[in-house]
Design a binder for these strands. Structure first.
Lengths: 333, 333
DNA sequence: CTGAAAGCGCTTACAG
DNA sequence: CTGAAAGCGCTTACAG
């Protein structure tokens, strides 16, 4: 059961390897129909399958890109991946997906692994903690695009949500419904992760514009595992929030857990709005008002830009491209 | 900005490529400390990164496995993947995940792509429609293991849920709570997909053992997009079900959509139980009773067995290994 | 229209 | 302790 190689096919078809190679690459121009048929037959009877590794080594390209998401548990990641796969598959590019699990070590390991595997380019949701690594790719002009997050002072093209507007929309909606004491909960802010920071900024700005004050206990960015406690505190303040703005889907889940534990009624006891669609936003009672990201478009755009970079490794991409959120008003507000 | 190769390192360190290779592979036994230091330095100053493609070509192995899931939208798939990644990463094996999207064409494309990339083995959730392909891998003794589904008459090791028991547990639980008119809804049965068929069989058997009759309209296996209509019919029968058994998570979502649309109250109007945990089973009101699969253990086992196959390409795996479900009783029943 | 030869970047006996 | 040489399975000018 020895592996069939091109040499075997060539021998059986009575041609040279070069000719078999031409055949495989559909360069039929100067090939006699007879030769072509013999090769075809030899391939079929031998069950020959080309070794892409060898080809890639020679061609110095793998027709494969890598994508490294910070945390695959976010619905957003899944959708972006799907979009990337769709555009790549239509261009015969393979994609390898890795999950950094919010862990810079893992991110680094995956970036190195993928580059060692010679992938032609990378789309990454950067953890933000591998500056030198990003920098070195940048310097080597290695095709690279960031999604969801930018890294300050790094000059790497990034596709982002218009986060400020997203927050503005959330606050505006709540405000128009008459809510005034609006709190915000999200995942940790200390790492300076773009969407978190910008959403908090946008939220603050929108409140200020409406002359609403934000008690210090009204903005929290903490780990998912700490959220139950933080919510406990938040709702033990003298001025209890009337509305809560959730920074992302995973946070929303924690909030709903809390709401249930406390037997709160939405929106009577608390109005709730979140960024990111979730699978159950329609079926939850009440259905959930959501600020939704155009995840699919963002993924598509990122893939297209990366492929452009790969093809003409000169043209610099626009730096930070912003996509607009949209609001889906349901019953939780 | 030309690519740094081993030859460059060798030259700079004043040794041969062979020696650099030894260094990279940690074969220091006969290497002078001096040489070693020079190589180390050369690598650092040049920023050399080995080309894994070349190594793999020579070594005839890539230290990479592929996993092809039938449908990544099932929570179960995600968890199995995660488990596979964990065991592989601890053994320095890379994993490439592909989503067949319930489409045999895509499955075929991915299997061929991964094999062309020379992955060392494959774990697949078979769509069941690529018999010849499975057969040929089997014949070539290509390392392969199935998860979630088996393919009849194919003799390929498969790791499966004990589906009959899962259904038995569901029915038993409902029965013990006093429900008698128990219906079941799941995804299409016509393709003979193992878990669906077995769960339906198990359900029928369990009903029979309890001398319960199943009106014809009580078992449905249909596409997700048809479920609203089918549920409509099901609840327009003269004998309306008191309890509904959902075959998987995606089905559950459809049922919940229907329940909401109809303003039904769970469990008063309808008791509900499903196979597969979902993100919102705790927070849903009422919380959802679930038959849960040991997805993580199943993935771990599959990965371990595949790696064994790869290492000693002789030892045949046990054929159909069954894992036991467990029930998480909550409030929907 | 087809083939011989070189080469992609590694690893691996083997020799010394 | 280290190096020369062959080879993994392809592709790609180039020659004829």
């Amino acid at each position: 059961m020895k592996k069939i190689t091109m040499a075997d096919v060539a021998q059986m078809a009575n041609v040279s390897k070069s000719t078999v190679s031409q055949y495989l690459n559909h360069r039929y121009e100067y090939m006699s129909g007879d030769t072509r048929a013999r090769i075809e037959e030899a391939i079929a009877t031998l069950g020959y399958r080309p070794n892409i590794l060898a080809r890639s080594l020679k061609q110095k390209k793998t027709s494969t890109i890598g994508v490294i998401v910070a945390n695959i548990l976010h619905m957003f990641s899944t959708q972006v991946i799907r979009a990337i796969e769709d555009v790549c598959s239509s261009e015969d590019i393979n994609v390898i997906v890795c999950n950094a699990d919010d862990n810079p070590e893992k991110e680094k390991k995956y970036i190195e692994m993928l580059r060692a595997k010679q992938v032609d380019g990378l789309v990454v949701f950067p953890t933000g903690d591998n500056l030198e690594l990003y920098e070195s790719m940048k310097k080597e002009k290695y095709p690279l695009i960031f999604v969801d997050r930018m890294v300050k002072g790094m000059n790497i093209p990034s596709v982002l949500l218009d986060n400020e507007t997203a927050s503005e929309m959330a606050v505006d909606h709540l405000y128009s419904r008459g809510y005034r004491r609006i709190a915000m909960l999200t995942t940790p802010l200390d790492k300076g992760i773009t969407p978190r920071v910008e959403r908090v900024e946008g939220y603050k700005k929108a409140l200020k514009e409406r002359s609403l004050i934000v008690p210090p206990g009204y903005i929290k960015g903490v780990k998912l595992t700490d959220m139950q406690n933080v919510l406990e505190e938040m709702f033990n303040q003298p001025e209890v929030p009337e509305a809560l703005f959730s920074g992302n889907d995973l946070t929303l889940l924690e909030i709903l857990k809390f709401v249930k534990k406390k037997g709160m009624s939405i929106p009577r006891d608390l109005a709730l709005i979140s960024i990111d669609e979730v699978s159950f936003s329609e079926i939850y009672e009440p259905s959930l008002t959501i600020i939704s990201q155009p995840a699919f478009e963002m993924g598509k755009y990122a893939a297209e830009k990366l492929l452009e970079q790969i093809r003409s490794n000169a043209k610099p991409d626009p730096m930070n491209v912003r996509f607009s959120p949209s609001i889906v008003v349901r019953k939780s507000t």
